[in-house]
Design a protein around this nucleic acid. Sequence first.
DNA 1: AAAGGGGTCAACCGCTCACTA
DNA 2: CTAGTGAGCGGTTGACCCCTT
Length: 281
Amino acid sequence: MARLGFSEQGWIKGPWTPEEDKLLSRYVSQYGEGRWSSVARSSGLNRSGKSCRLRWVNYLRPGLKRGHITPQEEGIIIELHALWGNKWSTIARYLPGRTDNEIKNYWRTHFKKTGKPCEKQEKKKNQMQKQHMEEGQNGGNKGDSMNDPQGNKQETVITYPTVVVDNQFLPTMYQDITSCSDIIAIDDYLWGGGFWNLDNGLKRFNSKPTQSATSRARFLSVARDSSLSQSRTIFLSYTLFPEPQSRVILSATSHVQFSATVTASPPPPVAVVSHRLQQQQ
DNA sequence: AAAGGGGTCAACCGCTCACTA
DNA sequence: CTAGTGAGCGGTTGACCCCTT
């Protein structure tokens, strides 16, 4: 690939070569992140510290996700952008494996012009949701649908565990969603969006919840570990209201044992809350 | 098949902030 | 308090890709 040129300081500019990537990766794995200017000097790379840092953070860093933003991630982006605006790095902290640059690019290409997802994206999303619905009807016991066959709205009671808050803000553990490999998105049609009441089990609001509901939440995404066939681990992430800047990640195994972490933001991880979730009778 | 245009994304730029001497 | 330096952030650019005509 042709070089774009050199900076005034003589640093190479332009696309990175595989050799440069190897050099940088080797250096960082040996000496760690940080001190980027010394990385630039000592690694043998004729690149500026800034360039090295950017390449590492956005491309070489372990744990980065490749591929398209999922509908769940899109939901999180929309939600958090509504809260914080163009705070890309803050938003990126809630999307493990995604970089601020990636999210920024995604936002600009998908939402910047119209302020809403482009038609193509919407079509795709609807298609996915339709597919989920069909799969759900084929034996999935995931709770009642949002609408009855006549299309009338009704409150949905999910036969999933009840959420009981043990103690408020009792630090117990911090569970990172990234620790689960091969997370795929599921149940988007069921969980994605909408408001949920956590006071008396998981009940879904069809309209905006009342101000008195203290532990209402909006689910942003659900994902599961596909490698577990019997003992599914489900990850729920949602924004707690009325604290708009807190977010909870719940993890559930076999629909029996739940644990939850609350991270105040920005940035995570900070305060941790433990919820005990009991299986609904 | 070729050209044009729009979309995507890696990379750069300029600014701000935090830290230190 | 101030100046220098490094790191990080958001905005912007430009090359490449792909779709449409």
